[in-house]
Every structure is written in structure tokens, then in C-alpha cells.
Amino acid sequence: MESALSKNEGEFSSVGTFSDPIYMQELRNQMIKFARLQVRDEGLAEDAVQEAMLAAYQHIDRFTGKAAFKTWVFSILKNKLIDLLRKEKRHTAASQLEEGENLNGDALMDVLFAKNGHWNKSERPQKWDDPDHGVENNHFWRVFDACLNELPERYSRLFMMREFLEMETPEICANEEVTVSHLNVTLYRARLRLRECLEDCWYQSEAKQ
């Protein structure tokens, strides 16, 4: 069934779109879902969406129509989230975050790799046969969602900025006040954990069935 969002995209004038409650509600739901993936705090996510919608309404004259209305609103939300993450960073005791998670990362490295720096025999990556992560496979996406939520806060935040907000390395380093090598190590460990989680919870369990 066609949603109000896809049906109305392009049919309404940008100003008219704001007076369509069904379209706006669907758009808001999608924006909140996206914002929650980034900030993991419902209140902050809703604030960011509210601010983005208000900014879109106030600056509707800047909407040129070159991109879809939804894409334009999402680009405003993306900027709001980046601002929010930057502000939040100032209020976070980074050293407290670092300590726990570095231990976490080192512990994972000790499990995966032997002292000589090569893979432990039992942890060597196996071929991911027939990933079967098509759109229709809800179970896979529930597993992926759970693995994503299992990432430590610090890993998750930088991984989301890189993979979801598609920010480049210099931009993330400037926002988060981290060095390039720190970012690279953090992204590496986030991917290691995600890979490990998917292998344990999906690929190997599928192979056993």
C-alpha cells in the first residue's frame, strides 16, 4: 500500500505540505526514528525533530524544489543532530567514557587475537554463506538492530556519525575533538564487535539449523 509520504511527495506545494496532517505525522515518525538512532535519548531526539520542523517551516522560502521535500527536511535534521552531538560532547565526561570502553575493546582483542597478533584458531572469520538479509527477512534486521544497540556508547556514536550521517573523518574529529588515529581505532573496534555479534547471532546460528 502506498503511504501518504510517498504518494504526496511532489504532488503538494512545499507550503501546502505543512497543512497535510497525515503526511506530516508520517514524516515526523520517520524523523524521530532516525534521530533516535543517533542520540538514543527520546527527549533529545524529539527536540531535534521539533527544531528541524520549525526551521523548515520558517525557511520554506529556501526550499528550491531541486530535491524532494522530505530529503530537504532530513538534511535540516541531520544538521540539527550534528549540532546536538557537538553540544552533548561538551557536557560529557569523555575520560569516564574512554576508560570503560578501552578495557572493553582490549578484552575483545584478547579474545579474537593471540599474543603473536594473529587470529585465535577458534575465532577465525568464517565465510558468511548466503547472507539472506533481504528486505523481507525481518528476523535478520532484528538481530542487526540488537547488535547495533549492544555497541558501547562511544563506539556507537562514532560509528553512527560515520555510517549513518555519512560524516567524513576531519568533520568527526573536529566535532568530537579526537585524533584521526583515535577515530580509526574506535571505528575498527566498533566494526569488530558488530562483525562478531552478527557472526555469533546470525551466520553461525543459521549454519547450525
Partner: peptide
């Protein structure tokens, strides 16, 4: 094992892209 790991890193990025699409995430103008 490292060859497999390299393939899985690429696969992970593809999975993340599909996950984003499923969540209707649009970040590019």
C-alpha cells in the same frame, strides 16, 4: 581469515546501507 574479514567489512557496509534505507533515512541533498 583476513581475506574473509575484508569481505565481511564490505558486507557490513552494504548491510548498514540497506538498514538505513529500511529506516527511511535520507541524509543526502
Amino acid at each position: 581469515p583476513c581475506r574473509q574479514f575484508g569481505d565481511q567489512m564490505k558486507e557490513l557496509r552494504e548491510i548498514t546501507k540497506v538498514y538505513k534505507d529500511l529506516n527511511n533515512v535520507e541524509t543526502k541533498e
